[in-house]
């Protein structure tokens, strides 16, 4: 029953060697430019994209940004994609965080970066978005939003026109907003379980559609909420970012010369053309590295199980 030496060795690779291999596997693909890997559109991501693309011009969307630098790998791509789509819809948004005092600053950095892509300078504060900063105590904050937006969002912001700080409800963004029902969409970009709190406290899901852009860890859990209709759309981790980017570049069910689209979302009847000037960004750049890392993981699991496989085969021989 003794295994050959090389096989035993493969089952006892030192941890440190594995770690080094993982560093190489994730770092090298980052230096390759212009890789595009095809991806299929999930229902949840498709629903999110379609919802975003059906927003009327000037609609008001909430972005609750609950992530910090530690989950930049996934959440930054999601927020960037969300902002680009909102810009193409000429939507306005309300930004705040209910999870971490640092989150608003991180989100502001992303907005600044995305704004550079637009020739007109992108989203302007006060005109196109209001920044409500951080609200502690996610639970009670969500409750107070559900009961009265005006009290919950009692913040001021500087109006660039006259340099005075005014109530955010005087801004062009929130002028017509009084209740949750006046908002077109409530999105949560998060690395934790904050969508659950919002769903809990808002009660009836019909008050305002809620969409979540979560990290892969939170994905399976939130899939339940999507299935039960408590979320109208969801983007799951890095893969969700890649899907959003693909839909932005390829459009949804969009056909050129009768050729089938690269991005198909079967549950959606219509078609959406590609977004103007859309490009593959951070999501696709990381996607190749994700492949090499995952392939390495699979190979290692197989190597680890070699002993058991050989036992099976030996049994077969005897």
């Amino acid at each position: 029953m003794k295994q050959p030496l090389w096989m035993e060795k493969l089952q006892q690779i030192d941890r440190k060697v594995l770690y080094l291999m993982l560093i190489l596997a994730t770092a090298i693909p980052l230096f390759i430019k212009g890789l595009v890997i095809p991806v299929k559109i999930e229902d949840s991501t498709g629903a999110l994209f379609v919802k975003l693309n059906s927003l009327p011009e000037g609609s008001v969307v909430v972005i609750q940004s609950d992530w910090t630098v530690s989950s930049r790998g996934e959440s930054a791509g999601q927020l960037e994609a969300l902002l680009r789509i909102l810009r193409s819809r000429k939507s306005k948004f309300v930004l705040f965080s209910a999870a971490d005092p640092q989150a608003p600053q991180v989100a502001r950095n992303v907005i600044r970066r995305v704004n550079k892509e637009f020739p007109d300078g992108g989203f302007k504060p006060w005109q196109d978005y209001v920044d409500l900063k951080y609200f502690p105590q996610a639970e009670s904050f969500a409750s107070s939003m559900a009961s009265d937006l005006r009290k919950a969002w009692d913040r001021t912001m500087i109006d660039p026109a006259d340099g005075r700080s005014k109530s955010v409800f005087e801004s062009p963004v929130l002028k017509g907003v009084r209740r949750l029902e006046d908002l077109q969409l409530y999105t949560i970009v998060t690395a934790s379980g904050t969508p659950r709190i919002v769903i809990q406290r808002f009660g009836s899901p019909s008050r305002v559609p809620i969409a979540a852009l979560v990290t892969g860890v939170m994905g399976p859990e939130h899939m339940n909420y999507f299935a039960a209709g408590q979320l109208i759309g969801m983007s799951n981790g890095l893969r969700g970012v890649v899907e959003l980017e693909t839909m932005m570049v390829e459009g949804v069910n969009h056909r050129v010369d009768g050729k089938a689209s690269k991005a198909e979302y079967k549950r959606f009847n219509g078609s959406i053309p590609p977004l103007e000037g859309a490009q593959y960004k951070r999501g696709m750049q990381y996607f190749a590295s994700l492949h090499t890392a995952l392939i390495m993981l699979i190979i290692l699991v197989i190597l680890g199980n070699m002993g058991i496989f050989t036992k099976w085969f030996r049994k077969g021989d005897a």
């Binding site: 594995l18 994730t26 630098v69 390495m296 993981l297």
Partner: peptide, 29 residues
Amino acid sequence: DGMLQNMDAAMFSIIAFFILSAAYRAFRI
């Protein structure tokens, strides 16, 4: 931003290494 946040991110991402070694060591059928 320079230190605390980056150290947060470093510790968060260190889990990837542990996943790899745990999968290799413990995922036996």
